[in-house]
Amino acid sequence: RVIAMPSVRKYAREKGVDIRLVQGTGKNGRVLKEDIDAWLA
C-alpha cells in the first residue's frame, strides 16, 4: 500500500498517474505532490 495524503491521491488521479509507480521521497517513503510533478516531468 502506498503512503500518501488523500489530496495527493486526488492530484495523481486528476493527472492520470498510477500512484503505485511513483517513488515517494517523503518520510517513510510517503508520496508527495512534488513526486507526482517530478514523475510527470
Rank of each mutant, 00 (worst) to 15 (best):
W39D: 03
N28S: 15
L40G: 09
S7F: 05
K33D: 03
R30P: 02
N28G: 15
K15R: 08
G16A: 05
K10W: 08
V8N: 03
P6S: 08
V2K: 06
L21H: 12
K10V: 12
T25C: 04
G26H: 04
W39P: 01
V17E: 00
R1T: 15
R1D: 13
L40Q: 06
A38W: 13
A12T: 02
E14I: 10
A38V: 11
V8Q: 02
E34W: 13
S7V: 07
V2S: 04
T25Q: 07
Y11F: 05
V22F: 04
E14N: 07
Y11T: 01
G26W: 03
V8M: 03
W39N: 05
R1V: 15
V22N: 01
Y11W: 04
P6C: 07
A38S: 14
L40K: 06
A12H: 00
D37R: 07
D18M: 07
A41W: 15
A41M: 15
I19R: 01
S7K: 13
K27H: 08
K15L: 10
P6N: 05
G26K: 05
T25D: 02
L21D: 09
A4Q: 04
G26S: 09
V31I: 09
K27S: 09
G29Y: 10
V22I: 08
V8K: 01
R20I: 10
D18V: 07
Q23I: 14
N28R: 14
V2P: 15
L32K: 13
Q23N: 13
R9E: 03
S7W: 15
G26D: 04
L21T: 15
K27I: 14
R9S: 03
G16Y: 07
E14A: 14
V22A: 04
G24I: 02
Y11M: 05
R9K: 10
W39F: 12
L21R: 06
K10S: 07
L21M: 04
E14P: 00
N28A: 13
R13N: 15
M5W: 11
V8G: 01
R9T: 06
K33T: 11
Q23L: 15
V2H: 04
E34T: 13
I3K: 11
Q23M: 11
D37Y: 06
E14Q: 13
L32S: 07
V22W: 02
V31Q: 04
Y11P: 01
I3R: 12
A4H: 03
Y11L: 03
L21W: 10
V8F: 02
K15I: 08
V22Q: 01
M5V: 15
E34Q: 14
R9V: 05
E34I: 13
E14K: 12
A38H: 15
A41F: 15
V8I: 07
Y11V: 02
R30H: 14
D35E: 01
Q23T: 12
I3T: 13
R30A: 10
L21V: 13
K10Q: 05
V31S: 01
L32H: 10
V8R: 01
L21N: 11
D18Y: 06
I3Q: 09
D37T: 07
V31Y: 02
S7T: 10
G24L: 02
A38Y: 12
A41D: 14
R30L: 10
V2G: 05
R1I: 15
D18W: 06
L32N: 09
M5Y: 15
V2N: 07
A4W: 02
R1H: 15
A12L: 02
G16K: 10
K27F: 08
R30M: 13
A4V: 05
L40Y: 08
G26N: 02
K27G: 12
D18L: 09
A12Q: 00
K10M: 07
Y11Q: 03
D37L: 05
V2I: 11
G16F: 10
V22D: 00
V17K: 01
V31T: 06
V8W: 02
K27M: 11
G16P: 00
L40P: 05
I19G: 01
V22P: 04
I3M: 06
K27L: 13
V8D: 05
Q23G: 13
K33V: 10
A38E: 15
E14M: 11
R13W: 14
N28I: 08
T25S: 12
K33G: 05
P6Q: 15
Q23F: 12
T25V: 04
A38L: 14
S7R: 08
R30I: 11
T25N: 14
G29W: 06
L32C: 09
A38F: 14
G24H: 05
Y11D: 01
R20A: 10
R1N: 15
W39S: 08
L21I: 11
R30K: 10
V22Y: 01
V2L: 07
P6A: 15
G24A: 09
K27R: 10
T25A: 03
A41V: 15
L21C: 09
I36T: 00
R1W: 03
I19P: 02
K33L: 10
G26A: 08
E14V: 14
A38D: 14
E14D: 12
A38R: 13
A4R: 02
V8S: 03
K10L: 14
D37M: 05
K27E: 11
L32Q: 07
R30W: 13
E34G: 11
G16V: 05
W39T: 09
W39L: 14
L32M: 11
A4N: 04
I19H: 03
V8Y: 02
A12K: 00
A41Q: 15
R13E: 05
L40I: 13
K27Y: 14
R20M: 10
D35F: 00
S7G: 09
K27W: 08
G26V: 03
I3H: 06
G16E: 08
K15E: 11
G16C: 07
I36Y: 00
S7A: 15
A41R: 11
V31G: 00
N28W: 12
V31K: 04
R20W: 13
S7M: 09
I36N: 00
V31H: 01
D35T: 01
L21E: 13
L32V: 08
K10E: 06
V8P: 02
Q23S: 11
V17G: 01
M5Q: 12
D37W: 05
R20L: 14
E34N: 15
L40F: 08
V17P: 00
G26L: 02
L40R: 07
M5F: 12
Y11R: 03
V31P: 03
D18I: 06
E34H: 12
K10T: 10
S7I: 10
R20G: 05
A12P: 01
G26R: 02
Q23Y: 12
R13M: 15
G29D: 09
G29S: 09
Q23P: 13
D35N: 08
A4E: 04
L21A: 11
I36E: 00
G16R: 09
M5L: 10
L32I: 08
Y11K: 02
P6E: 12
R13D: 06
V8T: 06
Q23R: 10
R1E: 14
V22L: 06
A12G: 03
D35W: 00
K33W: 06
N28T: 06
R20S: 14
K33E: 09
R13F: 15
M5A: 14
K15V: 11
V17Y: 01
L40A: 06
V17S: 01
K15Q: 10
A38M: 12
M5T: 13
L32F: 09
P6Y: 07
R20K: 15
N28V: 06
Y11H: 06
V8L: 04
G16W: 08
R30F: 13
I19D: 02
A41H: 09
G24Y: 03
V17D: 00
R20T: 07
A41S: 15
I19S: 02
I36Q: 00
T25K: 09
I36L: 06
G24T: 03
D18P: 13
V17A: 06
K15D: 00
P6H: 11
R13I: 09
A41G: 13
G29I: 02
A4K: 02
V17Q: 02
M5P: 08
I36G: 00
W39E: 06
G24F: 02
